[in-house]
Design a binder for these strands. Structure first.
Length: 819
DNA sequence: ATAGGGTTAG
């Protein structure tokens, strides 16, 4: 037995040092040995308390010292001690030293093997754990026991591995052990075989807390909340109490099922049973309250925590971020840093969203850089997607695309994010192109998010045929009954001029929420069917659906398009009765409603009565109204205010120059135009599109490059002659250049909407309807001309521009008071 | 001396 010399100082150990070095080369200095052993030296001439020594090894170098000590004393020969060393190194996180010690044990028993296995598993080295099991089974004489299997079941990386291990369990007769069975349940659930797991669970002769929890969490992780709750009920019927594990499993389910009551009851249970000091439980509570948008309670739970970990901080940050309070979220991030907690991937995911919400361009770069330096994009799709989303939301779409391309294994969400990014930045054709590229990827299956990202892109460019093909695919997945997908489809048909189809879809989707109502009200609005919109709104109220702020935007703009001034004002007041504070968008709609109807002064007074500072959209609405009614003076005033708040939007310069061109003040027109030019602004190029044979054909103003260009201009020439004989007089006020009348004629006839219409006429059978999309507002002269064209060609011509539909038939347009 | 079940996401 090794005994210590009475005075333990360095020199006594230094005697052994050379041997230690040559044997193991593990111990760096004698001092380490001494530090380690000093605990055992309290009583001289007594045996070292190795138990205590093992406990005092809190760092790898101390463990190495102890190891050396044990070797020198010959104690390391004992399989008992050697196995302890394997465990010690594993607990310190150094698996390779565990393995090193393990390899030096000449005759390993089952304890040794089990320790090595769990050493791997506890350190996340799953593959090596499985290999080690095979080593044990195939190269050693040692028979595994029921301690062997739970760790490796946790380690197996696929269902195939798991099944193989299961067959060993079966062969060796350990399947009735509670721990082994629970591990099997957990393993099968992990790979989605919940049914197999449930069968094993049901066949278990005895179930302890852990096995119940395994089954409940198994159902939860496979999205079977109802089944999980059933198991929970069974558990309580058998007299088993919920522990902290059960609670932290079940709380996310309450959030997912929107079961506030159950969540609160569980919180009470937690308090009653003293589980509130468990970090997992508190974290789960914070997350649940955040999902219920109950920030007060989330905050309360967070505040009363004794010890907060990374997840606690991430949860409270996400709580505020997801409830639209990026500033508070950022404050907590600061708090996290003050507490010395290092952010992880999920922290950065929240930060990316915070930055996007607060339109913080500068910090978006820092976040990107932080993530890149850690190579997180390489290891985690989620953060890559979050960065793509951040850039897309900030409108920095090319950066979004660059990051997207760097994501090594893109998933559906990566694609959906990119498609949505393009679509929401007005780049619908890029969005469609992205979707087509995605369809080629075999390993990507479109999901609900895909449909809600691509369908709005189709509606935006009016790709009805492509949209309908997608509708077919959606039907196969059954997702057309999903509120959001259904609403996108309603929007698609509505915005492509198929109001009837939109209506019949509307009657199919669930209508408990305001979402589909808002869409159908808006669709009727842009078709100029304001009365129908109001009727739908009343039906909505009758069905007990609560209108939200979007409802009123749809409604107000519907009234505006149909000139329903009184009804619009009624809506505006009603909105406040519903406790909805008017936003700038609502104010903008009201100004548009009053102004468009000719009540310019009233509109102006309305702006003056606003409690919030009017923004560009409000002044823009007034300016637009002045354009329609030719009020130069008020238009000038509106534009002055407008350029104070937004001097970057070209559209407003065009509007203002329109007003002056209308009254022939060409010098001022030039002034306005040069003002825009000086600010580096260029007119958004106008384009019109038409869908033929599943293809979208786009025409830009003055387009000369179309293969059928000559035929198109010929057709227009013939049409113009016929139109003139019917009394068409070109309105030159829409020509913003001060040129000769001949030139003006030509400019008007080469407007993109006219090119698209002419192309439609020569490319489709006579008398079939023509559907045109225009990205800007339809020009007033083209509007007038289209009336004549519809009469001459006996065609229905449907033009959707940036604000509404124009339905031309027999020389009449459905929209009233245009221009 | 060795074992299972838990919280955050785009």
């Amino acid at each position: 037995m090794f005994r210590l010399v009475p005075t333990c100082k360095g020199r006594h150990f230094s005697r052994y040092l050379p041997r230690i070095r040559t044997h193991y080369q593990l111990c760096s200095t004698a001092a380490n040995c001494i530090r380690v052993s000093s605990h055992g030296l309290e009583n001289n001439n007594k045996e070292i308390d190795f138990e205590l020594l093992f406990h005092s090894c809190t760092k790898t170098h101390l463990a190495k010292g102890l190891h050396a000590l044990l070797v020198v004393s010959g104690k390391a020969q004992s399989i008992f001690i050697a196995t302890k060393l394997v465990n010690l190194y594993a607990n310190l996180g150094d698996v390779s030293l565990s393995r090193h010690a393990f390899d030096r044990i000449p005759k390993k028993d089952v304890f040794t093997w089990n320790s090595m296995l769990s050493a791997y598993v506890r350190n996340g080295r799953f593959l090596e754990a499985v290999i080690c099991l095979y080593e044990m089974l195939l190269t050693s004489e040692v028979r595994p026991d029921f301690y062997t299997f739970p760790p490796v079941l946790k380690a197996c990386g696929s269902l195939v591995d798991g099944k193989k291990i299961h067959s060993w369990v079966f062969k060796l007769g350990f399947e009735w052990d509670v721990f082994v069975a629970a591990s099997l349940v957990h393993m099968y659930c992990r790979f989605g075989s919940v049914d197999v797991a449930h069968k094993i669970f049901n066949d278990m002769p005895f179930r302890d807390q852990g096995s119940w929890n395994a089954m409940i969490s198994g159902f939860c992780q496979n999205g079977k909340a109802a089944e999980a709750l059933n198991v929970l009920d069974d558990m309580r019927l058998e007299g088993m109490k919920m522990d902290s594990v059960t609670v932290s499993t079940i709380l996310p389910i309450c959030a997912q099922m929107d079961d506030i009551l159950r969540g609160i009851l569980i919180h009470l249970y937690v308090i009653k049973h003293g589980l509130e000091f468990d970090v997992f439980v508190s974290n789960a509570l914070i997350n649940m309250y955040a999902k219920f948008a109950n920030l007060r309670n989330a905050q309360k739970v967070f505040d009363q925590m004794v010890a907060r970990d990374l997840v606690s901080w991430n949860s409270i940050i996400a709580a505020y971020e997801q409830n639209d309070d990026p500033n508070a979220a950022l404050k907590f991030f600061g708090g996290m840093q003050l507490n010395g907690i290092q952010p992880d991937v999920l922290t950065l995911v929240s930060l990316a969203s915070i930055v996007a919400q607060s339109r913080d361009h500068k910090n978006s770069r820092s976040i990107h850089g932080f993530v890149m330096r850690r190579f997180w994009i390489m290891v985690d799709v989620v953060i890559g997607n979050a960065i793509v989303d951040m850039y897309a939301k900030l409108g920095i779409i090319d950066c979004a695309h660059k990051v997207f391309e760097k994501i090594p294994s893109k998933d559906v969400i990566s694609w959906n994010t990119m498609i949505t990014g393009y679509a929401q930045n007005g780049l619908a054709s890029e969005a469609i192109e992205m979707y087509c590229m995605m369809e080629v990827c075999k390993d990507i299956t479109p999901n609900q998010g895909t449909w809600v990202s691509i369908l709005p892109a189709y509606s935006h460019v009016g790709a009805l045929q492509q949209g309908m093909r997608t509708h077919g695919r959606v039907l196969k997945t059954g997702l057309h009954l999903d509120v959001f997908v259904g609403t996108c489809l309603i929007d698609l048909y509505g915005k492509c001029g198929r109001l009837d189809d939109a209506m019949s879809l509307f009657y199919e989707v669930p209508r408990m929420s305001s979402v589909p109502w808002n869409a159908i009200i808006s669709c009727h609005g842009i078709h100029g069917h304001g009365e129908a919109s109001l009727q739908l709104f009343r039906a909505m109220l009758d069905e007990g659906v609560k209108p939200d702020h979007v409802t009123f935007i749809s409604l107000l703009s519907a009234c505006s398009h149909s000139g329903l001034v009184d009804q619009g004002r009624w809506c505006f007041h009603l909105m406040q009765e519903y406790g909805i504070k008017p936003s700038l968008k609502h104010y903008g709609c009201m100004v548009d409603l009053l102004g468009r109807a000719g009540f310019l002064e009233m509109a102006f007074d309305f702006i003056k009565s606003m409690t919030v500072q009017p923004d560009a959209s409000v002044w823009g609405a007034l300016l637009g109204a002045c354009r329609i009614h030719g009020n130069v003076e008020l238009g000038k005033y509106a534009s002055d205010r407008l350029f104070e708040v937004d001097s970057e939007n070209v559209g407003y310069y065009v509007l203002l120059s329109n007003i002056y061109a209308n009254v022939g003040k060409w010098d001022v027109v030039d002034e306005v135009r040069s003002l825009a030019r000086d600010r580096g602004l260029r007119k958004t190029p106008g384009w019109s599109s038409i869908e033929l044979n599943n293809r979208i054909e786009v025409f830009y103003t003055g387009n000369q490059s179309h293969p059928q260009c000559e035929e198109i201009y010929n057709e227009l020439e013939i049409l113009t002659a016929k139109m003139k004989s019917l009394g068409y007089i070109p309105d030159y006020s829409f020509v913003l250049q001060d040129v000769e009348d001949d030139e003006k004629d030509h400019i008007l006839t080469s407007h993109s909407e006219r090119l698209a219409i002419a192309y439609g006429i020569i490319s489709t059978p006579p008398k079939s309807p023509i559907r045109i999309f225009k990205n800007l507002r339809v020009c007033g002269d083209c509007h007038n001309a289209t009336k004549f064209i519809s009469k001459i060609t006996e065609r229905e011509i449907i033009v959707r521009d940036s604000t509404r539909f124009h339905h031309f038939k027999d020389g009449i347009c459905s929209c009233r008071d245009y221009w």
